[in-house]
Design a protein around this nucleic acid. Sequence first.
DNA 1: TCTTATTGATTGCGTGGCACAACGGTTGTG
DNA 2: CACAACCGTTGTGCCACGCAATCAATAAGA
Lengths: 166, 166
Amino acid sequence: MRAKKEHPTAVSGSLADEVVSRLPDWITHLIQINSLIASRMGVVVTDFHCLHALQQHGPTTAGVLAGRVGLTPGSASRMIDRLADAGCVRRVPDPHDRRRILIEPTEEGLERINAYYAGLTARTHQDLAAFDDEQLRTLLRFIEVFRASAAAEVERLRSPADRPAP
Amino acid sequence: MRAKKEHPTAVSGSLADEVVSRLPDWITHLIQINSLIASRMGVVVTDFHCLHALQQHGPTTAGVLAGRVGLTPGSASRMIDRLADAGCVRRVPDPHDRRRILIEPTEEGLERINAYYAGLTARTHQDLAAFDDEQLRTLLRFIEVFRASAAAEVERLRSPADRPAP
DNA sequence: TCTTATTGATTGCGTGGCACAACGGTTGTG
DNA sequence: CACAACCGTTGTGCCACGCAATCAATAAGA
């Protein structure tokens, strides 16, 4: 444990250090944006993730939805209640297995999530205007690498008997 | 109900569109990572933001700290109670104004936040190894632009209808 | 076929973070 | 010296969440 390392504005011996030192602050801001927009929409951040997952992977059961957003099945059930009351999702019985109930987003839910992404994408497009295609390709690769890495990190953190061999 | 496009402005073909379409998923993962690590540390995400703000801007009063993490003064007081009980922060009376109480991180608090960043930093360094200096410079610019943009967005979202004319 | 085990989803209960509003202590101003 | 403004804290209620028990439906076994 190196306790002497300061991250805020790093010692910038390398560009990589600069990058990693500036990431946390950005991430913090992104998280705050998510919370603010969610509260402005009258929902909780978790509900937001649920809508996002629904939009990304399509309609699924409540169980896998709970897994995606990192909630217990019980909490997911209540979350779906909230979203259903808000008219954002709908419960549809699975014709093949009467135990299962598929959760699918409604028009209003899609509109809401789209409105959210519209605001963010507009700003993002503005920000991206300063980069050329070559740089955008680099950014794309960067995002893809980090997305995969983040997904792996989520999986690792969720396993209780983790850290078998560092 | 399969929508025609996955995202609102997904005019596929543009690199910028690719970027904006992939960002939300990554952000979602980052948020989940934050929540997971926070719960694993025995704190809440807000406490985490508090420690981050303390590390970024240095010791301040409870009031401005509440503003930074987006909490009411009352909630911030309770949050400071939690962190103080956990030994992460310490209340120090301001010698110049006995109404004010400065909040400063303790060694343990700094260690905790460092441990968090150490995990993320290690992974980030690994990911960054695949990029050369030119690309890293692009990434740095990208991050800086988006960080500023995100900060501005946070400010905008916090002021609901006000901001008449500064 | 009838019985038993497994899977999926929901509900009772307790915990805890948060907002709102009221309170006491401190500073500075007339 | 009295009054007002400011800062932090505390009382109260709300609601999201986890845990565990429960009900419904399918799958497996005698």
